[in-house]
Design a binder for these strands. Sequence first.
DNA 1: TATTATATCAAACGGATGTTCGAAAGTCAA
DNA 2: TTGACTTTCGAACATCCGTTTGATATAATA
Lengths: 213, 213
Amino acid sequence: MSSNHTRIRLIDAAGPIFATKGFEAATVREICHRAGANLAAVNYHFGSKEGLYAATVRQAHPNRLEQRFVPEYAPGTPPADRLRAFVGVLLSRLLELKTTDWQWRLLLREITDPTPMCREMLQGHFRAGFGALLGIIDEVVEPGVPPPRRHQIALSIVAQCVYYRSAASIIPMLVDEEELAAHYHTEALADHVTRFSLAALGLAPPVTTEDHR
Amino acid sequence: MSSNHTRIRLIDAAGPIFATKGFEAATVREICHRAGANLAAVNYHFGSKEGLYAATVRQAHPNRLEQRFVPEYAPGTPPADRLRAFVGVLLSRLLELKTTDWQWRLLLREITDPTPMCREMLQGHFRAGFGALLGIIDEVVEPGVPPPRRHQIALSIVAQCVYYRSAASIIPMLVDEEELAAHYHTEALADHVTRFSLAALGLAPPVTTEDHR
DNA sequence: TATTATATCAAACGGATGTTCGAAAGTCAA
DNA sequence: TTGACTTTCGAACATCCGTTTGATATAATA
């Protein structure tokens, strides 16, 4: 009874800490202190620190998270608009981390440097998002384009989104402060990524033209 | 005299270890053992582990590294070919890490999660590579396209290259083994990234067409 | 109520890490 | 050679870590 209490309190305390610091940097002592539990509680309830981590990731329930990548479109929405929505959702998930819950931040960390135990747990998650993007691409691609090329097209789109997260410390070295504030918020980036990708797909004029948007 | 000897031996031993394990995971004991030096040598010569790390990064950053991103083109090479060369060099630097020297691997690690001390050390490095890419883009873009948009175009190209490094553990979840072997080696990826980007720039037909290459 | 399983607690264990210390060895000018 | 210095070395120190232990409290069961 009360065992569930401290089990839950431990996971709730461990979640934000694992999400922010990662598995190695997080300490059992800090987790127990924040949970108001004894130091030995982790090993009693989860066997080890790894056991607590696995339970925490599992409790971040990837099943419902499959929808996180995929926005809902009204039926009949043209591919270009659906791509914009997809990019917008992905970018906001990647960039607005302060406001997001620890569950998503923890999974995101598993993306960057994955723990072996969580591999198959996240596989379905990624495949759902990837499949949704492929569904958009399939509509605008000639029938003869083979799947491998479609996959690479999808990855080129995802890559642009992910980059603005992984290179967050590099970009300020390359562009000045005003430009950063004006063009590197979520919406502006989503516009650009969509525009660049639509141009590559032949659904928009080349980005070399002066007048777009 | 011999002091320089152990200083150099320590840096030479620390370089590969820092490059593969990172600052935190590397231990002073392993470094000293590999250098054939006493455990106290690090603190005697560099004051602390951080001091050794700073000296190692500093020694890994000769000025010539600015050229690493930038291939040399014959004069008059058309922009499309220069872009292909640029992408090829960047991708090979990012993907072929086993064969690359530890100096580059260490700097690459500083890119992924940078240490505050090395910020300005790497700034010039990145700016050189970014500038080289911008030089290519400037040739194919209409004069009226403002610098911020040019910057984002350059970042979209870099992003695709960097992604294949940071998502190396995700991609095998999405594509099967034969496809991975056939389409995800350096040259094939460089071809695709170049083709996708050239299409976005209006220098190649859209990637949606069946027949390209 | 008596007994048994379950859960909490303080305390310590065993190991690893970066760092410090004092003695020993080496180096070089006077 | 003497003496002052720099450098090496073994040993220990001070912390931190995850984990274990054994006693104690709590709950459930008979």
